[in-house]
Design a protein around this nucleic acid. Structure first.
Lengths: 251, 251
DNA sequence: CGATACTTTGACGAATATCAATCGCAGTGG
DNA sequence: CCACTGCGATTGATATTCGTCAAAGTATCG
């Protein structure tokens, strides 16, 4: 875990935003694009393993992931950790903190990360002048809520192997959307410890469970990463039918 | 489980809204109040045990709880059920469905329930004309997200007795805010089956766990309900420090 | 009064955690 | 180049937690 905060660099134009070029995102109107370009304070690069937002912080910023992966998590005093969700290109981070106040979870970079940085102060202006973007923010909050609902069902009611199959298929499906911006190979950039802390299992049991999935030929576990060989097989084990998202917004 | 949908009755003025009279909610400006009064389509009463929103539905409505309790849940094909969260007076229901589309969870009344009904179609007008209310909607979505984060930590990383202590203190603290609108006595209107389905435990193990909390004098379990005798004791066992919410918005 | 829903209990077995090593690989310094 | 170190993955043995099964107790309601 690293704690230094990198500085915010000069901004580049939103018109050329790499995320914007991906399929499955809606387009801005030109006043929106103009506003977002001013809303953007700059970009920030963080190394893998860096905690760039911490529980208890009153951050002045809001972030959109431009490339790389991160994860949100909470810890208890005695060190128990629960990973809440993963963030990939186009995902917004820090909205909870910006809207309500203090952050109640931490965020760590899973891979080298490039973030688009927004000024929290300007958010009221966004609501006043750009109802479409305001709607998008609510949309994104509602989407996160949905994902958490599904995670809750998994941790609460699925067995270990179902949970593992759910998580890996979930990550695999999400990684497709952001495609090349996520990682260069098609490897999920996580360790078994991450899986354990997401699923609420011990690391030993997680290892044994992942071995079962490997034995079925559904995944292959490499050093510090997982390759999904058969998403449909995973979905079947997990008993999960994800709904396709199309035309989702981002900022 | 009951499925009949009660009809929507005539509306009463938002100016006299009982929820509005509670402490800890922010006031509307008068244009906001005027808008919300028009946004409101009416009121709806449902019996305890009624499913008034179901997974897969494209509901034309959005609800605010005026009195009573409800819960959101998801089920798997084989019947496993996970309760996601509880709703009490002033809580908004159906936002996910209104913003993104199809509902991905169901909602059931835990007690007799009175709901304020809003027209989904008008929501864009709300964003266009009342940025303050739009912000409030995002605020409420972000709050729900926070609660789910905490639940996820509980189910994933707390032991059975910690989870039970967490849930009961959580419900107890929330029930204070809406006070008399929630229930007449200070009893949490849930069964052990609800506790089990919220915590991801079997009903038998839930029963044994609750017995331990009773033995410590922290709660008393009555028929179809729980009385919390010592919230602080529960909070200590759960190892949980809830942050006080003040001046929260509602619609 | 019976019927139903909820709670309670004990016995047993399955799932999962903990403990304690070991292995393999990548980076590091000599 | 090689020993050394640290992190992540792996494994077997054992302990604990938790689920399942089966049964009975208790209250409410028509």
């Amino acid at each position: 875990m690293k704690f230094e905060l990198p500085s915010i660099k000069n901004r580049t134009s939103c018109a050329n935003c790499p995320v914007r070029k991906l399929k499955s995102f809606r387009d801005f109107t030109s006043p929106e694009l103009e506003f977002v370009s001013r809303f953007k304070a700059g970009e920030m690069s963080v190394e893998a393993g860096t905690n760039f937002l911490n529980e208890g912080a009153h951050s002045a910023h809001l972030f959109t992931v431009l490339s790389g992966w991160a994860f949100r998590y909470k810890t208890m005093e005695d060190g128990r950790r629960q990973i809440l969700n993963y963030a990939m290109p186009a995902d917004l981070l820090g909205l909870q903190g910006s809207i309500i106040g203090e952050m109640q979870h931490s965020i760590e970079a899973l891979t080298p990360l490039v973030l688009c940085v927004f000024e929290r102060d300007r958010i009221h202006e966004l609501y006043r002048k750009h109802p479409g973007l305001a709607y998008d923010l609510t949309w994104m909050a509602a989407r996160e809520e949905r994902i958490l609902d599904e995670h809750l069902l998994s941790i609460g009611r699925r067995t270990a192997i179902e949970r593992a199959a759910y998580l890996l298929s979930y990550l695999q499906l999400r990684s497709r959307v952001s495609g090349p911006l996520a990682s260069n190979d098609n490897r999920l950039p996580i360790t078994q410890q991450h899986v354990a802390d997401t699923l609420g299992l011990s690391i030993v049991h997680t290892n044994k469970t992942l071995k079962k999935l490997s034995a079925k030929g559904l995944i292959k576990w490499l050093d510090r990463g997982c390759v999904v060989l058969d998403v449909d097989g995973l979905l079947e084990i997990a008993n999960w039918k994800p709904e396709p998202t199309s035309g989702r917004p981002f900022i």
